[in-house]
Write a protein that binds this DNA or RNA. Structure first.
Lengths: 215, 215
DNA sequence: GCCTGTGAATCCATTCACAGCT
DNA sequence: AGCTGTGAATGGATTCACAGGC
């Protein structure tokens, strides 16, 4: 019964998670999947799978399960990955270059259409894939003219806030920030931070916890 | 009053977050910080900061605030980043290489001590920093002899599970998995997944949501 | 019989509001 | 007076358990 209620943030992330095993199952030619099976693949509770999906509609058939192809299509519609998203990246150090070449992005509808860096030595360099590195002065005009919707920031932390400003003024809709600094929150622009050391700290804490319990 | 209760997972992540502005504040020579100030830096609620810290002890002084240097030391003790953690990485494509060279790891006590790849063309190659890429056959002996505690997996998804097996059998304590596949859960080994496309899907969904509301 | 969809119950996390210390 | 530390209150998210439909 498709409610227009507010949907848990965690639900959106899991919906994205579900799509991956579904793709594999579809490739294998299996037509139907149960919440139980899907849950096993994603290491979650089956009721969680059903509830997550039920926020968006009734995609299953009672007594049978979910049609794999249909469910995948619905999920792509929910996540708006049934269309191309145009990305721009600022900062082409090791991480930035790795992101541009990361093939999973393209597979899932995310395409880099511009790359920027401050380093004059890098400007004009053609990346594998054909993108040419542009100077920061081009951030605003290119973001607009190429209709870039999401900006990835992979600069040193000192530059991140300034870069974010440029992107926001050029009308970008969302920023995925890999620089280890907390960007100022802005209306009109969603910001998501990815910080590997936070994740490592988390693991370190829990590893230590286990050692302490075990002794 | 330092409870030995179970601590929210989100708390651990925020504790890690707090350390960054604290380092900057310390460098600036400011001696004391209030929960309100720290909360502003990290975009969280001040009560949240106080509650998070109170799980681990009473680090503040009523009427005054927290001593920056002491608080930072306590946080490092909590996160066990007051010592070196030895990392091994498997898969030295673009992302793997970027991770090895990522300077934030070393700053925070995470040191890569071994690198592995299946590609014969890469084996023997010396990475910036001095690490030499080893073949998969060395994963088990080196993990043991170098006492590697955390393994990072940056292979294609097909290889991830096999690599995880090798690492687990060699006694690794935790895995940080960048391959877009959900690793089987194991006792004795913590697993954390990092998946950029899930984060992008999340942004795409919310951007679309805003557009829909605005219209 | 089987598996979905979902209200109700449970569990967990965040925020409030104030007592307690300096 | 000011700011921490924390029980109580609120707000969310997950899981249970079963009704509903194949």
């Amino acid at each position: 019964m498709m409610k227009e209620a507010k949907i848990p943030d965690a639900t959106i992330e899991r919906i994205s998670l579900y799509s991956r095993p579904l793709e594999r199952i579809l490739e294998r030619g299996v037509a139907v999947v149960s919440s139980e099976q899907l849950a096993r693949f994603c290491r979650v509770n089956p009721a969680q799978v059903r509830k997550d999906l039920s926020y968006f509609g009734e995609f299953g058939v009672r007594g049978i399960g979910y049609n794999v192809r249909d469910l995948l299509r619905e999920i792509k519609k929910i996540l708006v990955s049934d269309r191309e998203w145009r990305l721009g990246i600022v900062g082409l150090g090791n991480l930035g270059k790795a992101l541009v070449q990361h093939e999973n992005f393209l597979n899932r509808g995310y395409e880099f259409v511009a790359a920027f860096d401050v380093d004059p030595a890098k400007i004009g360099f053609r990346l594998p894939g054909g993108l040419v590195i542009e100077p920061p002065s081009k951030i605003q005009p290119l973001t607009r003219s190429l209709a870039i919707e999401v900006g990835l920031i992979a600069t040193p932390p000192e530059e991140a806030e300034g870069v974010a400003n440029l992107l926001v003024h050029a009308g970008i809709k969302a920023i995925l920030n890999f620089a280890p600094t907390q960007l100022r929150q802005r209306k009109c622009c969603l910001v998501e931070n990815v910080d590997f050391t936070v994740t490592l700290d988390n693991l370190a804490y829990h590893v230590n916890q286990r050692v302490k319990e075990g002794s």
